[in-house]
Nucleic acid binder design. Structure first.
Lengths: 217, 217
DNA sequence: GGGATCGTGTTGACATCGTCAACATTGTGG
DNA sequence: CCACAATGTTGACGATGTCAACACGATCCC
């Protein structure tokens, strides 16, 4: 029957449908982006791909597995944007703040996708090794940047991973506030992020700290 | 029929079942706590209360409305614990840090409940005025504490709400990391929180900032 | 070249869920 | 005492995730 206007001269067309797994991930992400995570239904994305409802069970064990795949790709994209911001920004302090802005920008631009990544829809318990690996990769981008800043004595010499977790918490929190609409306007996120980066540097204490209390080792 | 061993001399027993709305909220929270948000089913909590499945539609318009109620109570509890930590801690810097610890403790002790509050299951768009009011109340506790610290010149004189948002983002981010199991051990949250409070005070910059750059107005 | 075999997609069916409409029951006010 | 509103029940419906059985298609092995 009319397999729609597909199935053409594409070289990588393994079997019946041209790379269904790819299409499933794309279509799922599109649906999530349009209608939110709750609006995702397996039957609909099957129909939208011109394929039956249970076809995806040959590529994903579960609905959660599909969501895990979407989350995995989200972490991959996020890492790419973080690394790009870091490298294009000159790998200095400005680049670091550019990373923070890129993080929040990603979250605000793709709120539903971001929620799939962090909303607890996927088991963090190593059920999906690829997911945890990709998430760790995105985090590693932040760790690497912080380590570079430490080498240049721009930031404190604390335990890098611990400091990275702190920074991650800050940007994650700002992104969450922005996504949940708990900020005045949509553009309020960027203003809050600017302020957060400032306070991230100097802290919130009243500015009377002398240069004592140095602890380099 | 055996209405179970209830319906006794309780004074506040408006109609057939003794305060069903209260029971629904409690049972829903218990189920969520035990099986997560996804495991909540209206039929099951009805059965667990010895009541039919559609009984709750007399008290909540929707499943989302029930979840909104659970979230509302979560914000109320959270605010109470925040205020308690602040007041019992002496309303000083130590009390402020105690507030942060209390926040994260609440989130880690009730991860599923916390997720209902922030997981996007409820519309932030003023659909539930009581929910937004209670959430604002919890946030206000933080604003009040920060304002007090500002009066005592313990923290910077920045815009209080903006600084409160920043602090909220930090504790929210730390809590999220802890809930998602992205931290080594369960007790890793408290260690990260301790570190986060330290860096919240002093920032992450290398400690060479002179006392210049003061900006009091 | 022709079956065996595995990968891939389809159909049918089922249990479960949220929700609505209609009905029953219970407490309250005139 | 009786209408009435508040509260709870039953039946039913559409939608959904998922499994079992089957059908098609490519590839491999002799």
């Amino acid at each position: 029957m009319p397999r729609s206007t597909r199935a053409a001269r594409k070289p990588d067309r393994p079997y019946h449908h041209g790379n269904l797994r790819r299409g499933l991930l794309d279509e799922a992400l599109a649906t999530i982006r349009a209608e939110g995570v709750e609006g995702l239904t397996l039957r609909e994305i099957g129909a939208r791909l011109g394929v039956s409802r249970t076809a995806l069970y040959r590529h994903f064990a579960d609905k959660r597995a599909l969501l895990a795949g979407v989350a995995t790709e989200g972490f991959r994209t996020l890492r790419q944007q973080l690394v790009a911001a870091w490298e294009e920004g000159g790998r200095g302090r400005a680049a670091f703040e550019s990373m923070g802005a890129a993080y929040v920008r990603f979250a605000v631009a793709n709120p539903s996708h971001y929620r799939v990544m962090f909303g607890g829809f996927v088991n963090p318990k190593a059920c999906e090794p690829e997911l945890t690996a990709e998430a760790a990769g995105a985090f590693q981008a932040l760790v690497d940047a912080l380590a570079a800043l430490q080498r240049d004595a721009i930031v404190r010499g604390d335990d890098t991973v611990k400091m990275a977790r702190f920074v991650w918490a800050v940007v994650h929190g700002v992104a969450m506030l922005g996504i949940d609409g708990q900020l005045p306007e949509p553009c309020g996120v960027e203003e809050l992020m600017r302020y957060a980066l400032e306070r991230l540097r100097t802290g919130i204490d009243a500015a009377e700290r002398a240069s004592g209390r140095r602890r380099r080792h």
